[in-house]
Design a protein around this nucleic acid. Structure first.
Lengths: 334, 334
DNA sequence: TTGAAAGCGCTAACAT
DNA sequence: ATGTTAGCGCTTTCAA
């Protein structure tokens, strides 16, 4: 029914092999013949079959990316980077949603893992990474973990140094003279939040200062708002707040304003992640930017090596985040 | 190198056909034999080849979704819905980023369009839809447009009634006694913003009221902030603002607060889209929610019919949005 | 209920 | 530079 390579061969008066060479941009085709083939393809409206090519070549040319949400500035940046770098390597990107807790679908698993649909997989911010690792290892699919929760020395992973990020923020606040600093974190099982907190506590103690307050909620506005509000109402008012994430920081700012105080005059607020809203709100949020572009680049680089077999042992890369100082933090009024 | 269906056949002592039947859940296999096959598959660690299956069957079992950004509450909801409904129909979802303006990559086009990689495509919020339509028609790929910009009677599309959304918001503000209402829109080429604006203007004029102010920026906080600030500084202060999008509304609220006024006491603010932040900020934002779940469901339903050939003519569906009244709008103080 | 054989559309290896 | 041939791994007749 559909036009195939033989039709093109016949129409152009050449063999299927030559047609195949044209499809694959082989240099070994006379220019004149290449043109004939190209024209035949155009006239017939020919499209090569990815299935047939994959079958014959033993690879798909597609890399899969598993992602937990499509609503996140950081994810968005990482994926764009991955996409771009894959293109440069001649691969296509197929993104798939990792439905938390719902891995027992009819088919059992995400389609990326099935039937060798992709040549490699990148898993971004997995929650149940152990299961994924097991599956990929069993199926022999090359893969890279990004922004993962636990340490897996035996698999390739790329992470951002959350401990350092926590230290940087804390140093910045200390530099501004703050000593009564509160930390609002996410649930303890997020390694990222835990490490940021550790950086916070360690940096503070290095200066002989104890955390003024530490509390945990979710990565959302509500948590930041409620925890801050509670602090304020109970009279436990820090001069600066370090939020584990920009959304939490937004909530904190909300609560501060609602209590009739100002950011940063009364309380400095610092976030984490550099959400695209953070630079646009007033006051613009001091935060920590993760090297999303670099994360994507490194991830693709490693995956390519894994796929072509040039990388045997596992590598664990740790990238550095960048403190972005904006208007939501200021020197402590003395 | 890799274990294939013949290996399974040999190991289980049955033919490849029987193995194939087991893979495809055919009922015509004796239970005893099915177990033998299943066990052989497990022992060998067998995974069917998607490429081979696609080639033999003439279809991939995958539907592609083209999306302009991974950082948007509405998109996120639509995609989750699409994903779920596709699963129910036995299809997998492969998401791909539509890089605006960058369709002249090395390969020429997004990979979804290439080489029959997918059985159908859903295009969400396209900007350059004409080009896509041409390409899909030429390649004979079944497709559905969602939240598209222009009218295309000849192709299947599903949209949300932005005009009605605009009317609903305006009616709500009128009900609250507002007559000095400003509208902050996005660039004119966004049909969505234009229609919301039209609903706004028409509803107002029906009551014999003229728009108090209309201005256009981008779909972001900055625009909302700057336009509102400018209005306030020039003394053109509405009692209510209708923003074409929640982010614009956030910016407007920011500017209002910065000018020492309150939302909604001094100025009511209404957004559009029900971003996930909107319900969490203070005051929570009155906005319009688009039926993302339904959009995804309908889109999949139509695409399935397009794929199986049961739908011949094109359909253009228009869904209704819902006004969500929260705390950012209130009755005009008289 | 099972199996033999013929494709699906392409590419790799080996000629020429 | 070009072509012949033999797969790639599966499903689909068709027969038994």
């Amino acid at each position: 029914m559909n036009v195939n390579i033989y039709d093109v061969a016949k129409k152009s008066g050449l063999s299927v092999v030559t047609v195949s060479r044209v499809i694959n941009n082989s240099p070994n085709v006379r220019d004149y013949n290449r043109k004939k083939v190209l024209q035949a393809m155009a006239e017939l409206g020919y499209n090569p079959s990815a299935a047939a090519r994959s079958l014959a070549k033993g690879k798909t040319g597609v890399v899969g990316l598993l992602i937990p949400s499509l609503n996140d500035t950081f994810f968005n940046c990482v994926v764009r980077s991955v996409n771009e770098h894959l293109m440069q390597n001649g691969y296509f990107l197929a993104i798939s949603l990792a439905e938390y807790g719902d891995n027992t679908t009819k088919e059992g698993t995400n389609f990326l893992f099935q039937e060798k649909r992709v040549d490699g997989i990148i898993i971004l911010t997995p929650l149940n990474e152990e299961k994924y690792i097991l599956e990929m290892k069993r199926k022999n699919i090359p893969f890279v973990l990004m922004d993962n929760q636990n340490n897996h020395p035996s698999v390739c992973s790329i992470n951002v140094d959350n401990y350092k990020g926590g230290c940087d923020v804390t140093k910045h606040l200390l530099d501004f003279g703050h000593e009564k600093i509160g930390y609002i974190g996410a649930p303890e099982f997020y390694l990222s939040s835990k490490e940021r907190e550790k950086g916070f506590v360690d940096t503070l103690r290095n200066e002989g200062i104890e955390p003024y307050a530490i509390d945990h909620g979710d990565f959302d506005i509500r948590s930041g708002y409620e925890i801050t509000k509670q602090w304020i109402e109970s009279g436990k008012i820090p001069t600066a707040i370090f939020a584990a994430d920009d959304h939490i920081a937004f909530g904190a700012m909300d609560a501060i304003r609602e209590a009739g105080m100002n950011v940063p005059e009364d309380i400095s607020v610092c976030g984490y992640d550099d959400d695209f809203l953070s630079s646009q709100i007033h006051p613009a949020l001091t935060t920590v930017r993760q090297p999303a572009e670099e994360l994507g680049a490194k991830g693709v680089e490693i995956l390519m090596q894994l796929i072509d077999g040039s990388l045997k042992r596992s590598v664990n890369i740790k990238l550095e985040p960048t403190l972005i100082i904006r208007q939501s933090t200021s020197k402590l009024k003395s």
